[in-house]
């Protein structure tokens, strides 16, 4: 199999079959009250970028510092640090490249670090024993999967604006139930790649 088709399969796997939100149940917290597709897409892009960066940083930290120094028990703290640095870098990047975008993101991107998909992807890469290149791709494709998930969820939630959802289910509960049904649909990808 050529490199290209391997990468393509990896892409399909990360975005659809093993979608980080719907198949791994990570990163849902950001979707509780996301109602606008535009905001969701912006947020998804930020997360995708941060995921790529944090994957690389976490891998480097693990291989260059933790393993040689015999501090593997500090992995969780180290990965959290990698996530924070990645988000901080993305924030600087956004301010430099797209001031308008950064403005619309409300000044600080730091809360994005609380997204468990970021920490999750770093751990996933470590568990799978990826090389640096694989880890970066995994971060990027996983981030794309997150982007797809959050945009689909935002579309559904915009649509649900007109629905007569019972008062007790409004907000987080109905978002969870919607995610459940979307996750069911995503099971169709099982076995692809």
């Amino acid at each position: 199999m050529s490199d290209f088709s391997r990468i393509l399969l990896f892409l399909v796997s990360c975005v659809f079959t093993q979608n980080i939100v719907f198949a791994r149940a990570l990163g849902f917290t950001a979707m509780g009250d996301e109602r606008r597709v535009e905001t969701a897409a912006g947020y998804g892009l930020v997360v995708a970028l941060a995921m790529t960066l944090s994957s690389a940083l976490a891998w480097l930290l693990d291989m260059l510092v933790l393993v040689p120094a015999g501090m593997i028990h500090l992995r969780i703290v180290a990965f959290a640090l990698a996530v924070l640095v990645a988000v901080w870098l993305v924030e600087k990047l956004a301010v430099a490249a797209r001031p308008a975008l950064a403005e619309s993101l409300g000044g600080s991107l730091m809360p994005v670090a609380a997204n468990c998909a970021l920490l999750g992807i770093a751990v996933l890469n470590y568990e799978a024993g990826y090389t640096l290149g694989q880890a970066v791709l995994s971060g990027l494709f996983g981030g794309l999967g997150f982007l797809v998930a959050i945009v689909l969820m935002a579309g559904v939630q915009e649509r649900l604006e007109t629905s007569r959802i019972p008062e007790t289910l409004k907000g987080m509960p109905i978002a969870l139930i919607s995610a459940s049904l979307i996750a069911l649909a995503f099971m169709g990808f099982t076995g692809i790649a």
Binding site: R159, S163, I174, L181
Partner: peptide, 11 residues
């Protein structure tokens, strides 16, 4: 039903 009934489900 949880979404409000006829016309309110998205799937």
């Amino acid at each position: 039903g949880l979404f409000g009934g006829l016309g309110d489900n998205f799937i």
